[in-house]
């Protein structure tokens, strides 16, 4: 579960690394929650900052066997984002569905 914006901290990058690594051992899905959806905005150009644009790496998730990336409709709306603004196709769920989604998995890793 990714809950933070990119660039402001290394949590997002660390979280993505954990997903790529964890996908070798278990069936994983990703929930981009709250500010976490900011990580998926297209066209991040980090040449003017000391951070790295790792959003393109989300495109590799399918090759790692991570088939589903979830986003919450309300999180997108509150941030004036639509699915076309994002670098990869996502599965959009309602906020009310998050609780049962979290219940579907044995372990939750938070970043």
């Amino acid at each position: 579960m990714q809950s933070r914006a990119p660039h402001g901290s290394l949590f997002g990058q660390e979280g993505l690394d954990a997903i790529l690594m964890g996908s070798a051992f278990a069936t994983c899905a990703v929930l981009m929650h709250g500010d976490g959806v900011y990580q998926l905005i297209r066209d991040q150009r980090s040449s003017g900052t000391s951070t790295r644009d790792y959003s393109v790496s989300y495109g590799a998730l399918g090759d790692y066997g991570v088939e589903t990336v979830f986003c919450v409709q309300e999180d997108l709306t509150e941030r004036r984002l639509v699915v076309d603004d994002l670098v990869i196709p996502v599965t959009v769920i309602d906020r009310a569905a998050v609780a049962s989604l979290l219940n579907d998995y044995n372990t939750i890793l938070d970043f």
């Binding site: 914006a5 990119p6 660039h7 900011y38 905005i41 297209r42 066209d43 991040q44 150009r45 980090s46 040449s47 003017g48 900052t49 951070t51 644009d53 959003s55 004036r80």
Partner: peptide
């Protein structure tokens, strides 16, 4: 700040 705007993909917004 433009570089931070660009890094976050918001330069056209």
């Amino acid at each position: 700040l433009t570089p931070d705007l660009e890094a976050r993909g918001l330069w056209d917004r």
